[in-house]
Nucleic acid binder design. Structure first.
Lengths: 358, 358
DNA sequence: GTGAAAGCGCTAACAT
DNA sequence: ATGTTAGCGCTTTCAC
């Protein structure tokens, strides 16, 4: 089934069919349009993408590179992006980078050669140096959860939440409950979003007249930089380390994400401690399992649906770029049962029935 | 960067370069080979896919259609499939069907037009009628978790666990613990894998001299057929219904998957009941969160890594098809703390440290 | 062992 | 308002 056959069937030339296919219907008389449309329908014709792409150099595909779809947060985000893409007739090519710059580079090259319209990149690595040349060659790159950094190619746009605010919300929730010994638990901090959250943690502590430097700290064991799937393992390890050492352990935890938070809760349980009673835990992302967990996890929610459509929109934009544009959305704290005041009494919190803090 | 320029730089014709690119190195003298390879390296040449595909009609892409990557099980599977694909230089195009036949059909058509080598389909719908014509036109279709059914196009191959065995393992674990009132909790049973699990449930009951028909039943509320993301909601609703009615509730639950099981646990908690004490719950899939949950969830594990590589392999096979081939792998029961004997005493179970039943 | 040439299906100047 | 035409970059007979 080619455009030629359709043209023959409709008694017109291929270019007229092509014009119809590309929305230039103003260049033909309605009767012609109708004839072609009938021919297309009858023959069940669908244009060949490879030919189209070879000719125009463009595709209807965007690439999505996430650290790991094994992490439900990225799964959920991928799904939202796909919904947005579907609505505008676009495909999504999904890749897992495991936050490995080499692998990321390889995927980006691959996607670029595939002719993707743009790439939504979710790994938040400290620099984009490994991708700079491709961006300079014209790749439209959108970084998700990684605001533009000094040194980034200026063409890159970004969509993320304000991680500083997120870290701040999580932490001040704990200080307001009366916690004075807090620990920020994360795997490697070598990701832009992570340092943002950590800065928010420090800011909130200072706002509560607490000294960040005086807090019990935990650092992911050397060697293997944990991937996203191992996030839970990180949390579990942290709980073991923090509660079995000689240092007085914290009463509240801010975790880098929900998987880590849930792993931490698991680690607490390993030691017979109770989340929400002995220790308060705040997660980040508000994945679906936060609500399901026992106890339901207090978490900082990211508006992923909105973020997905914004990311897609940016990834598809043609040339009217606004270089270096960063969109920062506001996260919201969802208070559930994993946090309470350190004495055990729950502090009064005003929240709607979905748990969103007012 | 085109093949012409490489040819010019190496002082040969495009066809010789093409021969090299396609592994036909036996057709040229080693010196030529080397010269071309140097030219390719120096110019940083990479073949244009669109042109290649237009010419050959083939791609290096496989399609993957899952019910929803929002469900961590599918996220994990997608990741495994990608790993397998990466190893053989293949791309994966990921789609969420939400188990909607129309959407599925649309995606399959889309992928087919995109020239994918094959499609791995994970939705387990009762029939493949909506895809029969495309399969007949040559689409290489692999159904995951959906053994071939009577009426399927014979070209379709399948990879799945033996769901009957899985349902049996889950259920007999409970009967061996002494449970006599069991309920199978699932959303719509209109999926092949689901009926298999349910049959295993019945078989195990009969093996324990219990009458399936005498068990308390629960059926997903009418109207909206729950999608995969709503699986947790299904479980929660089931817990509410089963434990607030006039019928004597079950002491053990076999859930269709872990998300539903976790939702069920949440629902039990809503009513002040304790999983593993008041009620035993077995899930299915062994997603990463099963292990993290409180209490850790007993679940039927699917060997997804193995299943992913098998699926990919089948999807990529050229013409040497073995029509109707079904690969059935054996699931294994992972016993954790969400199951115990109805009296509250834990029955002795022999398991290795990872919880795998011996 | 290597090259010339045709053409995959489509689009977009450029005619008319 | 519609048609003619020249490729996009590659593969693959078929010559030599």
């Amino acid at each position: 089934m080619t455009i030629q056959q359709v043209a023959a069937a409709a008694g017109v030339s291929p270019s007229t069919v092509s014009n119809l296919l590309n929305g230039r219907t103003n260049r033909m008389v309605p009767a012609t349009k109708e004839r072609i449309e009938r021919a297309i329908a009858e023959l069940g014709y669908r244009p060949n993408r490879a030919a189209r792409q070879l000719r125009t150099g463009r595709t209807q595909t965007v690439g999505l590179i996430v650290p790991s779809v094994g992490n439900p947060f990225w799964g959920a985000f991928a799904r939202e992006l796909e919904v947005a893409a579907l609505a505008v007739g676009c495909n999504v090519l999904l890749c897992n980078s495991e936050r490995d710059p080499d692998r990321e580079r390889r995927y980006v090259e691959e996607l670029w050669e595939d002719g993707v319209r743009g790439i939504v990149l979710c790994s938040s690595l400290p620099t984009l140096d490994h991708l700079a040349d491709i961006v300079r060659r014209g790749l439209r790159l959108v970084t998700f959860d990684r605001p533009a950094q000094a040194g980034d190619p200026e063409e890159v746009v970004s969509v993320s939440i304000n991680n500083h605010v997120g870290g701040f919300l999580a932490t001040s929730h704990l200080t307001e409950l009366g916690h004075e010994r807090l620990t920020f638990v994360s795997g490697s901090l070598a990701a832009v979003n992570r340092t943002g959250r950590f800065r928010g943690f420090c800011t909130a502590l200072e706002g509560a007249d607490l000294d960040p430097a005086a807090m019990p700290t935990w650092t992911a064991g050397g060697g293997a930089p944990f991937g996203d799937v191992e996030a839970a393992q990180v949390g579990r390890q942290a709980a073991h380390d923090l509660f079995s050492g000689t240092v007085e352990p914290p009463t509240g935890i801010v975790a880098i994400n929900d998987m880590t938070a849930l792993g931490f809760c698991r680690g607490l349980r390993d030691q017979g401690l109770h989340v929400g009673k002995d220790v308060s835990v705040v997660g980040f992302d508000d994945i679906i399992l936060a609500e399901l967990y026992d106890p339901p996890l207090t978490s900082v929610r990211q508006p992923i649906s909105r973020m997905a459509s914004l990311s897609l929109e940016e990834a598809l934009k043609e040339d009217d770029r606004e270089p270096g544009r960063s969109v920062l959305l506001r996260p919201e704290l969802v208070v559930r049962d994993s946090t309470a005041s350190p004495t055990g009494a729950t502090a009064p919190v005003v929240a709607d029935e979905d748990g969103v803090l007012q």
